[in-house]
Design a protein around this nucleic acid. Structure first.
Lengths: 192, 192
DNA sequence: GTTTATCGTCCTACTAGTAGGTAGACAACA
DNA sequence: TGTTGTCTACCTACTAGTAGGACGATAAAC
């Protein structure tokens, strides 16, 4: 038992991940779930609303996921490791080969405002989470940070997004780990 | 005296940089340079050919630019610094706020093959250039590399692309330097 | 307990506008 | 005379979005 609007978002997400905001149409979704275009408009009157809802859901899932990482792993090292492993798995099995918001961020200049602001919020949230993990790790002398936690978090986030892009450009899922793992290792005190 | 086909590419480039492959149309170009859509088809019969030509030109400019950096600066340190400064300036004055190929790489799964292969070639070329600079710098004991030059090059390239994305997501050009400069500094022997 | 009204969902059929692309005429020019 | 570039005029396919109605479920009114 899964609602139609959920099904719509389920179908839309991989399409957005593959081609961005302009990379899919109501017709694509219509074909995929066997429902008329007009019915999609019933659930999501405009495309901007559809994508906004999609990003809202994605952000909610992300928030839950990050929170559960913090509950599941006590050590900041393990938390960060688990975060990286999560993306490695997603890219590896192609279940989510790219972050929805990273994809949309590339198209920022032409996104509807309501979508752009949500994408930006995701970036803020993720940066905040990474900052808190890095800060905690630094306080526990697990990480050695060259910059302040917030700057290190931005660097790490950029690395992750850049690594996703390279994995895609080279059509090589392994590229993600090849880039991010050493970046992560660099933070560890033990390695120096 | 600038040829029409050059003008077409000049107009198409910022449109692609803003919205990707599906983010512009022949009509957009037509409006911008005061020429009919059909005339654009005369120069570039298909959209895939237009974008392929655009990427070819971009790659050529990149090759020239990177070569001139190597001629202009003797030290690998300065070469890398100049490369970073170049992008910092482009993003700062919004003349080229994103790499054409990084933009297209995000849409890789739905690009025409002829475009995708060219984008991939750009990534290979840039990674190769960075590798050679890093290697030279390591041999001269200017850089201290934790990984092999090729891996370090991939990491640096990903950082640059991720930093572009963050600058765009946060609508903050300064974000690029804030991410890339420390990453660059980390390579320098003097800093340790 | 049956009727009545409302709501949510989905439908067919349609709109105006845009997508990439084509055919053929015309003019300048070598 | 043929080539190059531009034009008008058009095409088909597709875009997001709308109008209005059919259907079933649910709930209130009698």
């Amino acid at each position: 038992m899964i609602s139609t609007s959920e099904k719509i978002l389920d179908v839309a997400q991989p399409l957005i991940v593959a081609g961005g905001y302009n990379g899919f149409s109501y017709a694509d979704i219509s074909d995929a779930i066997g429902i008329r275009k007009a019915s999609i408009h019933h659930h999501f009157p405009t495309k901007a609303e559809l994508v906004s809802a999609l990003v809202d859901r994605y952000r909610q899932q992300t928030a839950l996921g990050l929170k559960s990482l913090q509950e599941q792993f006590a050590s900041p090292t393990d938390q960060l490791q688990a975060y990286v492993n999560f993306w490695q798995a997603c890219i590896g099995d192609a279940s989510l080969p790219f972050c929805v918001c990273a994809m949309l961020a590339g198209e920022m200049p032409m996104l509807p405002d309501e979508v752009a602001s949500r994408v930006r919020a995701h970036f803020h949230h993720l940066a905040g989470w990474l900052t808190s993990v890095l800060q905690a790790g630094a306080e526990q002398h697990l990480f050695r940070l060259d910059q302040r936690p917030h700057e290190e978090a931005q660097m790490l986030m950029a690395s992750v997004h850049g690594a996703m892009l390279s994995a895609r450009a080279f059509d090589d899922p392994g590229m993600f780990a090849a880039i991010v793992k050493p970046q992560f290792a660099r933070l560890l005190v033990a390695d120096r």
